[in-house]
Design a binder for these strands. Structure first.
Lengths: 177, 177
DNA sequence: CTCAATCCCGACAAGATCGCTTGGGATTGA
DNA sequence: TCAATCCCAAGCGATCTTGTCGGGATTGAG
């Protein structure tokens, strides 16, 4: 396990995989949601709380700003705040801004215009599958708004009936609240 | 343009993105589905029909074989055939074999065992989101079997949310062209 | 028996992408 | 003035993808 400069393990394995852009970006939005109504919050502050690299977070903040999800205030005491109340921000919009259009396959984009960019449309029956997956993801993300993620997590650790998780050693389970 | 060594363009953009493993693998399974009941089909044959690199297809075939989805026959006149009838093969199983477990985030794997590999479980509210997405994708893929993709392009623009598959007779065995 | 067709398998190479850093600017309140 | 903050572009190493290559092992046919 060499100490690597970057995150060692990848985030999503295989098919449906959000990257750190999605992860960090969503966590940033959650923090802004907690801060909503209390003026701008600085990135340095949020980066410290969430333990994310500040410079990288900046790039994501720019993307969210360009997408009209956050507004920025420059200069001292500046920072970012939500452009809308959390309940008016569907997570589908956030993740589309961060990770691009939801397209499991090029032939199943949800972008308007090039609905079908597949040259084998005649023989391509699998197209149905990708579209179903795309709609499922879009539906799931549409059904969650930022307001659903903002409240403070109430830890519910219900152990399975049999085969209780024999994990007595959990390092650093508690983070600063 | 066609003289390119590898495929230039990536397949899925951003969040939910299947790779060529998924695409080629599914198309391979569809061909095997069309060939079902007619003995083994050789990879060279399928690679020619679907215009996919044969050597690469081999690797995917090994994975599908190890997953118990296809069986192989060695030697001359050998090849691959489905281990089960197409209606008994949910696409979720195919894609999990090809692309790995459905995990939009490491903290939302559907693999048994490491249900939670997140160290910030206390403050992590976003976990809810990833799990929703994961379940949506799993549900969509569970609702489609290989039999749904085998027939020759019958456009069904109906997405019944529950009790989807009602096809009683799977006489398949339809010899391809 | 010989031979060709086929599956089997490991290694690797080009390229793209990801995650993150660096290094500077521009703008504002105190 | 000065520090805090946003803004932005470029680049770098690690990893993953998308194949290719080269050789085996196994079998049916002639």
């Amino acid at each position: 396990m060499p100490a690597s400069p970057h995150r060692p393990s990848f985030h999503g394995t295989g098919a449906v995989a959000f990257s750190t852009k999605g992860e960090y970006g969503v966590r940033l939005m959650v923090q802004l949601g907690r801060h909503f109504g209390a003026g701008p919050a600085s990135l340095a502050e949020i980066a410290a709380v969430e333990d994310m690299p500040r410079a990288y977070l900046e790039q994501l903040a720019f993307v969210l700003r360009d997408a009209g999800l956050v507004v920025s205030t420059r200069g001292a005491h500046g920072g970012y705040e939500l452009a809308r109340p959390p309940a008016a921000i569907p997570m589908s919009e956030v993740l589309r801004a961060l990770e691009g259009p939801l397209a499991p396959m090029i032939c199943a984009t949800d972008e308007p215009g090039h609905d079908l960019a597949c040259d084998r449309t005649s023989s391509c029956t699998v197209n149905l599958l990708w579209i179903r997956v795309r709609d499922a993801v879009a539906g799931a993300l549409d059904g969650v708004t930022l307001a659903d993620l903002v409240p403070q997590r109430i830890v519910i650790l219900e152990a399975p009936p049999a085969a209780a998780t024999a994990a007595p050693a959990i390092e650093g389970a508690l983070t600063a609240s």
